[in-house]
Design a protein around this nucleic acid. Structure first.
Lengths: 188, 188
DNA sequence: TCACTAACGCAAATTATTTGCTTTTATGCA
DNA sequence: TGCATAAAAGCAAATAATTTGCGTTAGTGA
C-alpha cells in the first residue's frame, strides 16, 4: 500500500478505504472472481481507478488487504466451559470458516500478494487468539499445550489441508487437539 | 490451462510449452518478478502473446504451471542409512528448498492460481516421496510414522511457517520428526 | 500421401494500467 | 476562526496488456 498509515493533512484515506473495501466485499459475494477488476471496483466505490492503483498497487494487494481485514473481525473466543472445550469449539469454527469457499479464497488472496505483510498479520492474529486460551488455562491451573504446539500441530495441518486441497474429514479437529494435550488427565 | 493434455492433430504444444517454460524460468532467475509479463515472456520464447493467453489463461496460471513442474524435478530420496535417517535428510533438504527465495515464490505462485490443480499435484508429489520411506521402513521392519502423521505433523508445520513468515530455526526439522516417531526404540 | 483438426500467428478491438498535472480537503498553527 | 500546507484524490492522455476473429501451419491417423 503506497500511502501512509496515519492520516495527515489532506488525508481522505479513511473514507476512500472504507468505500473500496466495501465495494470489494460486495463484488466478491455476488459475482465471479474473474470479473472483479479495479476499474469496476472503482466505479462502484465512486472513486477513480488511479486512486486505487496509487494506493494499493494492484488487484492482488487490494484483495489481500481486504481479506486480512476480514480475518481480524472474527469474534473473540467464547467462554463456555474449560479452556480445552472452548479451544476445541474455536478451532472447529476456525477450520470451518477457512475451509469454506470464501475462507479459502481469502487465504489464497493473502498468500498471492507480493507483499507478505498481510500473511504475517494473519499468523499474528491467530497466535493472539490462541494466546487467550493459554492464558485462561494457566490462570485456572488447567494443563494446556504451548503456543508453538498449537500452531505447529493444530493450525498448520488444518491450513495445509485447505490450501493443498485434501480436505479434512469430520472429527479431524478433535483428534489434532487430543494429540497435543498434555497427558495426565483424560478426555474433556 | 486451456488446451488438451495429450497431443492431437495439429499440436505443436510440446515445443511451445518447453520454450515458454524455459523463458519463464530464465526471467524469474534474472529479473524482478514485477517485470515478468506475458508479452515479454512470449517475445523471448518466440511465440505470440495470444498463444500464451489461450493456453494458460493468465500469468498466474502460467507461473503456477512452471512452479509445479519444477517441484516434480526434485531428486529421488537417497538411501544412505536407516529409513529414519534418510527421511530426516530428505525433509531437511525439502525445508531448505521451500524456505529459499525461489521455493517460497513457487509455493505462492502455485497457491495464487485460480485453478487448484497444481496445488493438489504438489501435495500428491510430497506424499509420494514420503511413501517411499514408509515402504522401505516397512520392508525392514523399522517402526515408522504413518503418511498422515508425516503430512500433518512434519510437512504442514514447515509449509505453514514458510508461507506465513515465521521462519523455523535450525534444529526444527529433527524435532518435528522425533515427535511423530513411534515410541519403543530410542534415537536414530 | 492425404484429410483432418488442434494449436499457432497476426492484427484489430477492447480493456487495464501508468503518469503528469490540477484540484480537493483534513490538519496544525496563528 | 481562518490560513498555509501537503497528502490524497480527480482527470485525461499515453501506454501496455488482454481478448478475439480469422487465416495458416503442422502433427496424427487412415
Amino acid at each position: 500500500m503506497g500511502y501512509r498509515e496515519n492520516p495527515r493533512p489532506g488525508g481522505r484515506s479513511a473514507r476512500v478505504q472504507a468505500a473500496v473495501h466495501q465495494s470489494v466485499r460486495n463484488m466478491l459475494a455476488t459475482m465471479d472472481r474473474a470479473d472483479v477488476t479495479i476499474p469496476l471496483i472503482a466505479q462502484r466505490a465512486n472513486v477513480t481507478p488511479s486512486t486505487i492503483y496509487r494506493r494499493w498497487g494492484d488487484l492482488q494487494e487490494l484483495l489481500a488487504d481486504v481479506a486480512a481485514a476480514r480475518l481480524q473481525q472474527e469474534g473473540e473466543p467464547a467462554t463456555i466451559g474449560s479452556a480445552r472445550q472452548d479451544l476445541e469449539a474455536w478451532v472447529e469454527q476456525y477450520a470451518d470458516e477457512m475451509a469454506s469457499g470464501v475462507g479459502r479464497q481469502m487465504l489464497r488472496d493473502i498468500l498471492a500478494a507480493a507483499d507478505s505483510a498481510n500473511a504475517e498479520k494473519c499468523g499474528t492474529y491467530t497466535r493472539y487468539q490462541l494466546g487467550v486460551f493459554i492464558a485462561r488455562a494457566e490462570k485456572c491451573g488447567e494443563p494446556f499445550p504451548t503456543l508453538e504446539e498449537l500452531m505447529d500441530h493444530v493450525i498448520s495441518p488444518i491450513i495445509y489441508r485447505i490450501l493443498f486441497d485434501c480436505l479434512p474429514e469430520t472429527g479431524y479437529v478433535p483428534g489434532l487437539i487430543a494429540k497435543v494435550m498434555p497427558k495426565g488427565l483424560p478426555g474433556a
